[in-house]
Nucleic acid binder design. Structure first.
Length: 273
DNA sequence: CTCAGATCCTGTGCGC
DNA sequence: TGCGCACAGGATCTGA
């Protein structure tokens, strides 16, 4: 379940193997991803990777011809650097063969991921055009979020998971940040005060930062073996803890469904409205 | 326009 | 031990 911290640490981990290398060949074993991989992607061969960047949970490989490879890991995708003799496992859908012999291998059992090649910069691509600010940038702040929320009666949890408001806040981080802010996940977004949004934004930033630091620790040797995802190293307070007691007040953690997503909360620390 | 629900997919973990 | 099923989740699509 790659969340933003995992995508960031993946980017950092694979960068040394990709930067200034050329793509010799791309092998597609399974094209049926969230959006089927287009045969256009074969045209990335021969291009040098000049830079890597991340936008939300999208990973972008910038190529020397001005083109871009856009990769999304979905919820079960991994990228690994492997050697040519490394056996191909089930769900190893795509290989990027690099000059020098290393391979960037994409593994994704549930195939919710995405690989897209464009010969043009992707800023205006529909997948990226409407994304909100990066959560760790100053563009993501309580003030802006407060004003965007004034007409929104949707649950605050759905609001902060909406990639038009802010990118990279998945179910785990939304759930945990609402706990740390003392806000019930079903609270209508418009009912929150500026002070509450300031608090929520600060918690999102600190939890994501902490997760990136710990994900980095987990992924330091990710190329040697498959470590647990970084966020498991976080001490989760409510996510996946329904039925257990709150670490702060011993009240039993409850769980509800908000737009199809399980949402755990402490009814005492996060009172409704 | 706004919001909720369905949808895609397969591995995991539970109950029987 | 094994079978069947509910569940997990990001982002998009549909429909009320």
């Amino acid at each position: 379940m790659p969340e933003l911290p995992e995508v960031e640490t993946t980017k950092l981990g694979i960068s040394p193997y990709l930067l200034h290398r050329s793509i010799d060949r791309i092998i597609i074993r399974e094209a049926r991803l969230r959006i089927p991989v287009s045969s256009d992607i074969y045209h990335c061969s021969g291009q040098q990777i000049s830079a890597l960047s991340r936008r939300g949970k999208y990973l972008l490989l910038h190529l020397s011809n001005g083109g871009t490879l856009l990769i999304h890991l979905g919820m079960s995708g991994h990228l690994r650097i492997v050697n040519p003799e490394s056996p191909v496992r089930k769900h190893d859908h795509i290989d990027l063969l690099l000059t020098g012999g290393k391979i960037l291998r994409y593994h994704d059992p549930r195939r919710f991921g995405l690989w897209l090649y464009s010969t043009e910069p992707l800023e205006k691509h529909p997948l990226l055009a409407h994304l909100g600010p990066e959560p760790l940038s100053d563009d993501f702040n309580g003030h802006d979020l407060f004003f965007k929320s004034r007409q929104k009666k949707q649950a605050v949890k759905s609001f902060i998971m909406d990639s038009r408001q802010v990118v990279g806040v998945g179910n785990i981080y939304a759930t945990e940040s609402l706990f740390y802010s003392g806000i019930h996940p079903k609270t209508p977004a418009k009912a929150l005060s500026l002070k509450q949004f300031d608090c929520l934004v600060q918690k999102i930033k600190s939890i994501l930062t902490q997760a990136i630091d710990q994900g980095g620790t987990t992924l330091r040797d990710f190329y040697a073996f498959d470590g647990k995802p970084g966020y498991f190293a976080l001490s989760l307070q409510v996510y996946n803890r329904a039925g257990k007691v709150c670490n702060l007040c011993q009240t039993k953690i409850q769980s509800t469904i908000i737009t199809g997503r399980s949402s755990a909360y402490c009814p005492n620390c996060q009172p409704l409205f």
